[in-house]
Design a protein around this nucleic acid. Structure first.
Lengths: 155, 155
DNA sequence: TTTACTGCAAATTATTTGCATGGAA
DNA sequence: TTCCATGCAAATAATTTGCAGTAAA
């Protein structure tokens, strides 16, 4: 089980290495640490979160480096930008973005992922009708999660 | 035909007036002009677009006023925030946002609206499964529009 | 050695806010 | 007259960039 995850991330890291040598980049410890953490956690991150995470290992790391690394990840196709309208940008591993959508709780900020092949199919149909080539999609449902709904009822 | 649109917008303006008196607000010419233009055009606007539009009538209008008015519109429920990941915030009439989604061309920026009751139905089901109360949804398909697809093929 | 990578501070961009003044009610 | 609305300039906040020093290749 654990093995599988490791192998998956390794292949993603390989993708990045290909991109890296193609662009003539170097491998710094900090950058590697950011990328590994990002892939290991396998969920969406705000720049701030990632910054503080990496700071634990490299206390001198700067926002610039985190921003620059995330940009590289996005360019190489490993990360996707996904913001939830709170004024900050978030990134998530591209392979997840492909087939996951989000329920976003407006009260507590919890984000629940879901997937629906039925919706994806309908999206494809709509795109076809408009002769549109879909590169990526984004579906978010905003509202109250089960917990906050319960709390709201109490008052 | 024209009549119908006018009546529709009038009723929205009435909604705003209700909100206005509830909040003890006043009616300034500039604010009214922004709101009327926003409702008349009935599509999404960046703050910048709206600013320059209003500037034609009131050359001295400031960004502050546009921002403040759009905030009022959002608070009163007439406008919805909808950003497309280019770093700026857009607003669209709420009644449109309710049942329209977007195809966004990443090449030329064209935005095509579509609606799908089937997808809406599936969204409801998903929300139910997670015991989630949906307040609003957002579905965007990013890619190439028919035109840009054609151009891309040529080269 | 060469050239990319980093931190820092300064620059940029989008948005908000404090304050004195003008304008509805 | 009483407050709300406005413009302006200054303040924030998120993100980017120039530059001089540091570290991979």
């Amino acid at each position: 089980m654990k093995m599988k995850v490791k192998v998956k991330n390794k292949s993603r890291l390989d993708d990045f290495n290909k991109y890296k040598s193609h662009k003539g980049l170097k491998t710094s410890q900090k950058r590697l640490s950011i990328i590994e953490y990002f892939l290991k956690e396998d969920r969406h991150f705000s720049v701030e979160e990632l910054y503080y995470e990496v700071k634990k290992v490299y206390p001198k790391v700067s926002y610039s480096t985190v921003y620059r690394t995330l940009k590289l990840l996005a360019d190489s196709g490993l990360a996707r930008i996904c913001s939830f309208g709170d004024g900050t940008t978030r990134f998530e591993p591209a392979h997840k973005a492909e087939h996951h959508d989000h329920l976003v709780c407006q009260r507590c900020g919890t984000i629940i992922e879901f997937k629906s092949t039925e919706i994806e199919l309908l999206q494809k149909k709509i795109a076809q009708k408009h002769n549109f080539l879909v590169v990526l999609h984004k579906l978010e449902l905003y509202g109250l999660c089960a917990n906050c709904k319960k709390k709201a009822r109490r008052h």
